[in-house]
Nucleic acid binder design. Structure first.
Lengths: 346, 346
DNA sequence: ACTGTCGTGGGTAACGTTGCCCAAATGTTT
DNA sequence: AAACATTTGGGCAACGTTACCCACGACAGT
């Protein structure tokens, strides 16, 4: 049972002594600051390598930067978010920044706690994916720490946003289904509990896009929305309600793939087959939509690209906190697969 | 374009002044340390609430604890890991600890960088899920920071481990298939590039468990393992190779659900149907295995429980760094669904 | 009344890093 | 040769928190 020797961490002072320069000099070399000769840089780098020195993020945080960026995801089990995250990390690969992910933020209160804890840890910037906090609270946060908001359709002077054009995305689905001959097209939305930000949330915009597209196609009377959550469970119970209608819909458009999976469960349970008896479409084009066993028609919103753009904007804002804010809006595209087909002849 | 006032952060000094006590007193109250009267606690709590004070993790880190725990996951797109993570966060909900996730660690080098960056950030402890670093390196890390290793079948004096009994899990699958009448059962394993830790990795143990179970059933001559990775792509190419055999297997056991999904893709592409022409089984029992469209037979290794145990062990080790190490081994169970059936009559 | 003991509170020096300043040496212009 | 600019390096004081001490008063036991 060897008890390990508790070695003291190598600090900048050790490096300075070993290289026979001042700590200031080492610090300058570390940050490529002005006022270092090539000879000194060489000595310092050698000493760093010899001693295996690594700067303490805590000490740096106390002085300013930590080279840490935080990403908040609402639901880690939703396979769309890993794609966004991969875009973020890919953009940051060549930089000194480390990304840390704060998981499990269900609801406004948990979200606030999570964001606070990222601020407490002196992160240099944060990316919030589909946050549910009120607009004013987001502005407040962005005043404290550089912030990029993903998914919310908001415009602010102090934070940047990256979002998909959800109105267009919903229209893609409705148009596709109408062209196949469907008229009774129902939608499952994600119901926001917080009324303060309803009109900005992507889920609400998707539902609105669905309504607009239906009206545009002269199907106002067929509009049928059930409110659940973007989860498998939400899709399942929503679909059960829809399947229980006297006139059941011939197509169900779920606002997220994860909900569409629940819809497929319910449809299978009801003994119906897809797409013969009923068509199903999702949103996000997650990897699971593309599995041969599922083959779900879905709207692709380029999660990777969203993440990459968010990371880029965040770096820009960290570099210049007073720069004008940017709003990136990406166009979705429809990926047609095997869960949508013409409605059954009657 | 209102430029926000850059408010200075509220510090312990502000709280102390507002409550008319010393900073030491405030610090004591914050940590429930000895030497505080109820009256003082009351005053301090009031001041904290009035000012909205939050301790700086950076400053705390410089002195010792940061109340931050790190979790490293090898692949965030693998849906098994979110389940483990949920177990971790659930155990920590009632504590002051915040969990941060370090994503994207493909390969030994990226893994080392990620772990280093967690150490640099003075985290109080880390949970490493299926790390690929050599054993000696893990011991070195555990000497620096309290560490729990998930998935590796290792025993160390200074770190704790939580793992599934992969030998038993593989046997569950083989036995199930044999009892259905299969003989030509192939396995897709995850090939480790690092030879230093091969015998400890869960993937290698699953493959070994497969071999043992096959021998035990008198099917040594039928053993057929293809080496890929636990990804959808790996499952896909592995299955294509197996389907191209002169005598193709009647069942494929993929070492992970995510690989099994790729197997299903390849089987569908080959125009075969599951389970009529070929049976498929996975490992992990991820949510996607349970989707009605997939309905994959899989080994459940209780990801949530694994995460919960890992978090518990980590807290115990943080509390007492010299306590004896523990090895938790969880028993897997088989969940039979619709991708396994008797082999086709010939 | 005199010593201990306990409960309560505060003073102070780190922890590791960096931004601001100044000093010395070197180079350049008048 | 003097005045000035530039380069190169270092000293020092924070940043916010906590561990370790010590001081004071109250109270009990001799």
């Amino acid at each position: 049972m060897a008890r390990p020797v508790q070695q003291r961490r190598v600090t900048i002072v050790d490096v300075a002594r070993h290289a026979q320069v001042s700590t200031t000099a080492v610090s300058k070399v570390l940050r490529n600051a002005y006022g270092t000769s090539p000879a000194m840089r060489q000595k310092v780098h050698q000493a760093i390598a010899d001693l295996g020195y690594r700067p303490s993020a805590a000490a740096r945080g106390l002085r300013g930067q930590t080279y840490t960026l935080g990403v908040m995801v609402p639901d880690i089990a939703n396979p769309f978010f890993p794609e966004v995250l991969n875009g973020v990390t890919a953009s940051l690969d060549s930089t000194d920044y480390q990304v840390l992910l704060a998981p499990g933020c269900a609801g406004e209160q948990a979200e606030a706690r999570t964001i606070d804890s990222m601020i407490d840890r002196s992160m240099d910037g944060i990316i919030l994916i589909a946050p549910v906090s009120p607009r004013a609270h987001l502005e407040h946060i962005a005043g404290i720490i550089p912030t990029v908001i993903v998914g919310r359709h908001a415009r602010s002077a102090i934070f940047d946003t990256v979002a998909d054009d959800d109105i267009a995305g919903a229209a893609l689905v409705v148009d596709h289904l109408v062209e196949l001959g469907h008229r009774r097209i129902a939608h499952i939305e994600h119901l926001e509990t917080e009324p303060s930000c309803i009109e900005e949330m992507p889920n609400m915009i998707r539902a609105e896009g669905y309504r607009i597209a239906m009206r545009h196609r002269g199907l106002e009377s067929e509009i049928d929305v059930v409110s659940r959550t973007y989860t498998r469970e939400g899709g399942y119970t929503g679909a059960r309600e829809l399947l229980g209608r006297p006139q059941r819909p011939t197509a169900i458009f779920a606002g997220a793939d994860i909900a569409a999976m629940g819809v497929l469960d319910a449809v299978a349970e009801a003994g119906l087959s897809v797409p013969e008896d009923i068509s199903v479409a999702g949103y996000d084009n997650t990897t699971f939509a593309s599995f041969s066993q599922v083959s779900l028609t879905s709207v692709d919103q380029a999660g990777w690209q969203i993440g990459a753009d968010a990371a880029r904007l965040l770096l820009e804002r960290i570099a210049d906190r007073s720069r004008r804010s940017a709003q990136v809006k990406l166009s979705p595209s429809l990926v047609v697969r095997n869960t949508t087909a013409p409605p059954p002849a009657r």
